[in-house]
Design a protein around this nucleic acid. Structure first.
Lengths: 157, 157
DNA sequence: CCTGGAAAGATGACGTGTCATGTACCTGCC
DNA sequence: GGCAGGTACATGACACGTCATCTTTCCAGG
């Protein structure tokens, strides 16, 4: 509690570089995806998960755990996507509180059309800028931080 | 244009890990900063830049270049911060189109009170989870991607 | 001078994310 | 069987970010 452990120069530079990467890359990917397909990154993620789902449908809470989104964010977002005709909700017989979310034809078409360009953009802006070692390093480092984030007791290691 | 270069498994894992890192870490930092100080990460960044500025004041366009924000985002955000009493605007005599943004006393106090906790959180959740080598690797990798992002001709390297 | 283009900044509309809260339903335990 | 607490999901209010567009001022080339 006494003194503050400020960041030293190396830490500062790494942290700021990360922040800038996050900000600029996310913004750029969003812009391009939006321009080329009318979808946001959030839309894209939802549609991908639905496409990958066994029956082409998922319970919102499953979607939520896959995406690591807050519940209300998902609910609002699904509402907007429904309004745009990308997804549709259905009642759930096994659990009357619940619901199913499923792709509409328009949704399937949108993701099918958007995916190639988007993957190409991710590759050009990100993957191809890095070596395989850098990608491995990034994955490892991300997993470490995420582990700490998800373990409430782990901050003190 | 012929075939799509989809991501292989390693690339996929790295990319998804990065996306999750970005999402979860950002959300958590925002939550904690907001709870402990009433500031958002965006507020924090603006206040830090103003604190570091020579005269405690900056032209919006300078702030914009430091933060790498869109112009209208900055303008809107400064408006909200002004409404909350964190910053103040002043006319600029050298350029009548322009303006100065400066810290108010409340703004200075807010950042002074918020900084220690926030730095400690960044350290616990992020810096301390990584080795110095990982931090260096992250910085290097971020810089590479950013270079490509900022060079419109660089995507084809 | 003066005019056309570029720069500085503000603004309205709209999609997005969060928090707090509300409602319906399920489930375990007395 | 009924009730206590938890789960699934929706919603309203509000902060945030982007796009398109507008206004004012600067400046460079005639």
């Amino acid at each position: 509690m006494s003194d503050i452990r400020w960041l030293d120069d190396d830490e500062q530079r790494a942290w700021r570089a990360y922040l800038r990467l996050q900000g600029s890359l996310g913004a750029e990917l969003n812009r391009r995806l939006q321009a080329s397909s009318g979808l946001s990154l959030a839309d894209y993620d939802v549609l991908v998960r639905l496409t990958d789902a066994p029956d082409g449908r998922l319970r919102p809470y499953e979607l939520q755990r896959e995406l690591h989104w807050e519940q209300s964010r998902l609910s609002h977002h699904l509402g907007r996507m429904q309004k745009r005709g990308l997804v549709r909700r259905e009642e759930c017989d096994e659990d009357r509180r619940g619901a199913y979310v499923l792709l509409t034809e328009a949704g399937r078409e949108a993701i099918t059309q958007a995916a190639p360009d988007h993957v190409e953009t991710v590759r050009r802006l990100f993957i191809d800028a890095l070596s395989p070692e850098q990608l491995r390093a990034l994955e490892g480092l991300a997993v470490q931080v995420l582990a700490r984030l998800e373990d409430p007791a782990g901050e003190r290691a």
